[in-house]
Design a binder for these strands. Structure first.
Length: 189
DNA sequence: AGGAAGATCTACT
DNA sequence: GTAGATCTTCCTA
């Protein structure tokens, strides 16, 4: 039961993406905890990464990526909120996108937020998990912290990790930057 | 004012 | 499994 500190995110986003698998994302709503194991992530770099939001330089909608590691960065795509954590070494730019969770606690609450009954479709995609956990733009720019009702814990869960190219990306890098837990049914696709 | 977006849902072959 | 409609932010003009 260790809450992850901001320093965890002060390194290459690829390493952060790998290390986040098996960690627990905790979201507090009305004093109740909604929890899920992180089972799918993607790493994004800065201006040399054509798939990154930061590729075209600093803009209003992406400026958080230049901020300190550990900050939450949220953007909207097709009416879906994408949940990222700013991750980079000093002087660089980058973020890790959380793509899927394996629900642990507060499942009833999440189903109500999503208005569905099938648990397997509850949090198996980036836009789905933000709705289930009531994450939206208002959290963008805040740090992961119990103070802000959202944080990540390490409970020592061990997972088998696989990798692939990123999803939905038009111009991907050669490197494989999507990481997921092997044999977990909550991984998207 | 117009358009595009790292997705999701639904309805099928 | 794949294909097509969807509809909200936020960008560029």
């Amino acid at each position: 039961m260790v809450i992850i500190k901001n320093e965890f995110f002060r390194r290459n986003p690829k390493l952060v993406a790998i290390d986040l698998l098996g960690k627990i994302l905790v979201r507090i709503i009305d004093n109740k905890a909604l929890e899920g194991i992180i089972v799918e992530t993607e790493a994004y770099f800065g201006q040399d990464d054509p798939a990154s939001r930061a590729y075209h330089g600093k803009k209003n909608y992406n400026k958080e990526m230049w901020d300190d590691p550990g900050k939450i960065f949220i953007y909207n795509v097709h009416n879906n909120w994408m949940f990222n954590v700013v991750s980079h070494e000093d002087g660089k730019v980058g973020a890790v996108l959380i793509r899927a969770l394996h629900p642990l606690k507060g499942v009833e609450e999440m189903m109500r937020n999503r208005k569905i009954k099938d648990i397997r479709k509850l949090t198996n995609g980036p836009g789905k998990l933000t709705k289930a956990l009531k994450i939206d733009k208002s959290l963008s720019g805040k740090f992961l912290s119990p103070k802000n009702s959202i944080y990540i814990e390490d409970r020592g869960v061990k997972v088998k990790i696989g990798s692939s190219h990123r999803i939905g990306v038009r111009k991907d890098l050669k490197e494989k930057l999507r990481f997921f837990v092997i044999d977990d049914e909550f991984v998207s696709r």
